[in-house]
Design a protein around this nucleic acid. Structure first.
Lengths: 340, 340
DNA sequence: GGCGATTATGTTAGCGCTGTCATTGGATGG
DNA sequence: CCATCCAATGACAGCGCTAACATAATCGCC
């Protein structure tokens, strides 16, 4: 009773309702809710009571529009089922904690066209910043990102030039170091088991680095096997079985990542091959699965959590794009493990 | 040049700019961009050209405010590192595909207070629907959800009454069936290895079901071990080692989930215990890791993808809350595997 | 060939909030 | 005792878009 235009209810309590109940103006309620400007203790009390009584929920669409700032950070990752990306998100969430910002997560399914759509879609929410996995985008996507004026972090890799900020590690270098490490341990008869490169081109970079390291030492990669699909433990298991029928006398197999390598270890366990003694196995990422194995996986630790955290801290630390793109190397380290 | 109020640029192209360039009114541009109402072919052409030329990106905050509908679906999950939730999200994304809706994902870290904050925060975006993992919420959270009028799906479990819609499976029943299944296979000396129940109360429900099944058969659960933290492969490995020192003559160990059980298998492999022959192991979820094991894990398949997909389909299928809460059982099935 | 139906476009009035600039009523101080 | 300042509050316009209602222009059809 008394409501002027709203008849059927349903469409929510607004600032006006709260203001009316608390006998103050809308702007005062708004200020109290945002801790903005000086407010009398009694007024605050009265307004908060009204908020509670009405069950008022602010409308962020209206707020964002009015203040032209959504307090949103857009995030695009290629997958959530590959555990490394949730880990990056963990870092992002941790850095966002208490800042009032909220991440909007979108998944591109390793598809650049989808990524482009998602970029358009997320920019429409006027995010304060964007975090995108990878440096590879369509031209249109890149143009939209550049044109938006929004700060952009491209994460995971630093092997080429970013738009604004890159946070990650050099996958090519990691692959190279893997090669040198294994050569140093005396391995000479190399095999490689990978997965689809069109979807995961960072795996390709690591492969290139590996081959380069071997070439420097005049060692040849004897056999290569690639699964035509995303990496998985099952694929790794199957591919190792396959490569071993093709070339029996390998002394080490490098996998595109830990998932694949874990599958490789499973194959060994099932086939009575002793990891390291009979065949060395090497992965990438340093995932928990691999480290919990009876023989902890020899691999490279990439710092996913740190990548996400650093990206957000940098982005929120400076709201303007820098003159020159910045590149932050979060590094990696070889985990000796027990399989190589 | 010619812009009236914008001096320093930066703050975006608007509908008005596009309309001006294309020599039509704003509403016409708006209609074209939304495929709404009849539009002349030449006009459409001209407007699309103007959109391209200006690099216009619609402002969804304004759009949502004007049409009081954000085309957003809020999703709250307790974790992204537990792979089951990304799988639910996969189902959600699949059902959202092509509907024009976008999911906003938030992570509660298994904390009901955090969940409550996230609910408030997501409701502020005026989502069209919400999906929340679990039926357990704070009173305030529940009140906000009820009061919002928004359609709500509570997913994963159906062991108690939902607000609006529940999609999932009965974890208690799954635990019960696990017990009966193992009894049927002749096991009598049961052990249980779990993780923190305060964070994962569905695990507790399964445990309760298991105990109930055993009690019916007058079989006792001989030993219980619970890791004080989230489930992980490492924890499962450690806990199995521990329970076996406490009680050596178990013939089967039921784990709180596949992560824990996989750790258990790892322990066996390391300790020379043959799964099934020496000690049976049973998990929950039917994860890929477990199925890729040299001895595929005996477990229960929960249909995570289906849960997400069904929830969204139901929610978008009917925009009004039903009179009575609806419960959809997506079921589960026992995977015999090779460890029990 | 006039009347309603249909198609294509425009006009107006907000959606719910916040930035900006008043306004009010003491407290301060010389 | 009046100018000055500050704390506390309010009025008002407008963020960028779209629903709802006009308004033209075209088209059949008896």
């Amino acid at each position: 009773m008394g409501a002027k235009r709203l008849s059927g209810r349903q469409r929510g309590v607004t600032l006006a309702d709260v203001a009316l109940l608390a006998q103050v103006s809308e702007i005062t309620v708004s200020r109290i809710l945002r801790n903005h400007g000086p407010i009398g203790a009694d007024t605050r009390e009265r307004v908060m009571a009204a908020v509670r009584e009405t069950g008022y929920v602010p409308n962020r669409l209206a707020g964002g529009l009015a203040s032209s700032g959504s307090k949103l950070v857009g995030v695009i990752v290629p997958s959530l089922t590959n555990i490394v990306f949730p880990e990056v998100l963990g870092g992002i969430r941790s850095a966002l904690q208490g800042t009032g910002f909220q991440a909007v997560i979108a998944v591109s399914d390793y598809d650049l066209a989808t990524e482009q759509e998602l970029i358009a879609s997320l920019l429409a929410w006027k995010p304060e910043a964007m975090v995108i996995a990878g440096l590879d985008h369509t031209d249109i996507a890149r143009a939209m990102l550049v044109g938006s004026g929004v700060r952009i972090a491209e994460v995971m890799e630093i092997d080429s030039q970013p738009i604004d900020l890159a946070v990650g590690l050099s996958h090519r270098q990691a692959g190279f170091d893997t090669g040198q490490y294994l050569l140093g341990r005396g391995y000479r008869r190399f095999g490689y088991v990978g997965h689809d490169w069109t979807s995961d081109h960072r795996a390709k970079l690591r492969y290139d680095g590996l081959v380069a390291a071997l070439a420097e030492a005049k060692v040849e990669l004897l056999e290569t096997c690639r699964f035509d699909g995303p990496s998985s433990i099952g694929a790794g298991r199957g591919m190792l079985a396959q490569i071993l029928t093709q070339k029996r006398d390998l002394d080490v197999v490098v996998f595109s990542n830990d998932d694949m390598a874990t599958g490789g270890v499973f194959h060994c366990l099932g086939a009575g091959i002793r990891p390291k003694q009979d065949l060395a196995l090497f992965g990438f990422n340093g995932l928990d699965v691999g480290q919990a194995l009876p023989t902890p996986l020899s691999t490279v630790r990439s710092n996913r959590f740190l990548i996400g955290k650093t990206a957000i801290e940098k982005l929120l630390g400076q709201r303007q794009r820098p003159e020159m793109p910045e590149i932050i190397d979060t590094g990696y380290e070889i985990i000796a493990g027990a399989t190589a």
